[in-house]
């Protein structure tokens, strides 16, 4: 059975991707999935050679055929998403239009249009790719600028990574997740074997960690916490860890504040592939995660939900 380790953070910029890239290197034979689909960065470290590309189509989008529009405005009256634009004042042939950035593709406007002037074509929202890297296959994606349906794209990327792992006998999928707690995060965490929540000792990191741990509990996924840059504020790091323990969440380890982490990124290397001191901390983190996986009955978070 393939295990799936998902790295998330709540707050953005806590070091998720740097940690995930190092875990991918340390794992050696995992399948890696970059599920931060609207700001994917893992490929900048893992240097993938793309093997397959797939168009990502999701949902529909209303388009008005101006010649068929009589200008009655029923579409505008019924759209709940503010996506229908009225004709410009003084336009010779007044026709309504749809703002693609606001349209949810529900189809209400097309249904109400008395002249059938509104079409609902499928929309292309980006692409997803399967690549080879120095630490195994990478499934990644690129959401089109200002596009939606990121949760669906995450589901595709995750599903493909699991399929590849099962087909190639790899025991582990490592997922680099998105920030926040909404749609793409929910799509990244449900049904995962384990979450690694990377946080930082700041009031924002602490606040957002609490929300992510509530989300993990809501969906019944065991979580472990890692405080990155812990020495930036040791007292707050202590408090964050104490709070995690009180919630019954395991501590996977601490990573020190280390300017070499950025230098590794600039060199397009994972932190553990350089001499950066923080790499030692990430190796210890990996050892903790791997031993928890090897002994699932003593695993993280005996959550009595």
């Amino acid at each position: 059975m393939t295990r799936e380790l998902v790295v998330i953070s709540g707050k953005g910029g806590t070091g998720k991707t740097s940690v995930a890239a190092s875990l991918a290197v340390l794992a050696g034979n995992a399948v890696v999935a970059d599920c931060d689909v609207d700001a994917a960065d893992l490929h900048l470290v893992l240097a993938p050679v793309v093997r397959r590309r797939h168009e990502f189509r999701a949902g529909r989008q209303a388009v008005v055929r101006p010649a068929a529009c009589r200008g009655c405005g029923l579409c505008l009256a019924h759209c709940r998403f503010g996506a229908v634009l009225p004709p410009a004042a003084g336009a010779p042939a007044p026709a309504y239009a749809v703002d693609p950035l606001a349209c949810e593709g529900c189809g209400v406007c097309a249904r109400t249009c008395p002249t059938g002037a509104i079409d609902l074509p499928e929309r292309v929202c980006g692409e997803w790719m399967v690549s080879d890297t120095r630490c195994g296959p990478l499934v990644h994606a690129r959401l089109a600028a200002a596009a939606e349906n990121s949760g669906k794209l995450v589901s595709i990327v995750r599903g493909e990574a699991r399929r590849i792992a099962a087909a190639s006998g790899r025991p582990l999928v490592i997922v680099d997740g998105p920030p926040g707690i909404g749609c793409p995060v929910i799509a990244s965490v449900t049904g995962a074997s384990q979450l690694l929540v990377v946080t930082e000792p700041t009031v924002s990191g602490e606040h957002d960690l609490a929300r992510v741990l509530s989300l993990a509990r809501h969906f019944g996924v065991p979580a472990a916490v890692c405080v990155n840059k812990w020495d930036l504020n040791p007292d707050l790091s202590e408090r964050i860890e104490a709070d995690a323990r009180a919630r019954g969440v395991a501590l996977a380890g601490r990573v020190r504040y280390d300017r070499e982490v950025t230098r590794a990124q600039i060199a397009a290397r994972a932190v553990v592939e350089t001499g950066a001191p923080a790499g030692e901390d990430i190796r210890r983190l990996w050892a903790v995660l791997a031993s928890a996986a090897a002994a699932p009955d003593q695993s993280f978070q005996k959550d009595e939900v």
Partner: peptide, 13 residues
């Protein structure tokens, strides 16, 4: 919010 998808677009409009 971070990113480039719908919650960002909803903010920037």
């Amino acid at each position: 919010p971070p990113g480039t998808s719908c919650p960002v677009v909803a903010t920037l409009r």
